[in-house]
């Protein structure tokens, strides 16, 4: 419950405060958000499976974000940033879908 509240508060604060994002971080923010979403879906699925561990969640969340940003950064340096971002988004999209399917099976039993 508190976790859901955290998400809601985060969205509200982001919309209200409108912080300036440093230009260096800006290109990586969308990818980082997608990576974090993947971690969150993974965590939700683990919770439903009964194997949720907060430490693992934290590590997976942070490493997802960092690795995703790193890939994009590397892609930008190599001149294939756009393609690599697309690749990262596709991979995370597939994972989010499979996690969502597992969650769906738990919640709706279908």
């Amino acid at each position: 419950m508190i976790a859901v509240l955290g998400l809601v508060v985060g969205v509200v604060v982001g919309l209200l405060v409108r912080p300036e994002v440093p230009a260096v971080v800006e290109p990586y923010l969308p990818i980082a958000v997608v990576a974090a979403l993947d971690a969150v879906f993974g965590g939700l699925r683990a919770m439903l499976d009964g194997i949720f561990v907060d430490k693992v969640f934290v590590v997976s969340f942070l490493s997802n974000v960092v690795v995703a940003a790193l890939i994009v950064f590397l892609g930008d340096k190599l001149g294939v940033g756009a393609q690599l971002s697309t690749g990262v988004v596709v991979v995370f999209g597939i994972r989010i879908f499979s996690n969502a399917a597992a969650i769906r099976r738990h919640v709706f039993r279908a």
Binding site: G10, V11, V13, L15, F52, F57, V58
Partner: peptide
């Protein structure tokens, strides 16, 4: 609602996620 370490940590990370999401959308 239970205030446990797991809940708090997850809440913190989700807060960061929500923040990033909102900023990006904005």
């Amino acid at each position: 609602p239970r205030v446990t370490r797991a809940q708090l940590i997850v809440a913190l990370l989700l807060f960061v996620l929500g923040l990033g999401l909102a900023i990006q959308v904005r």
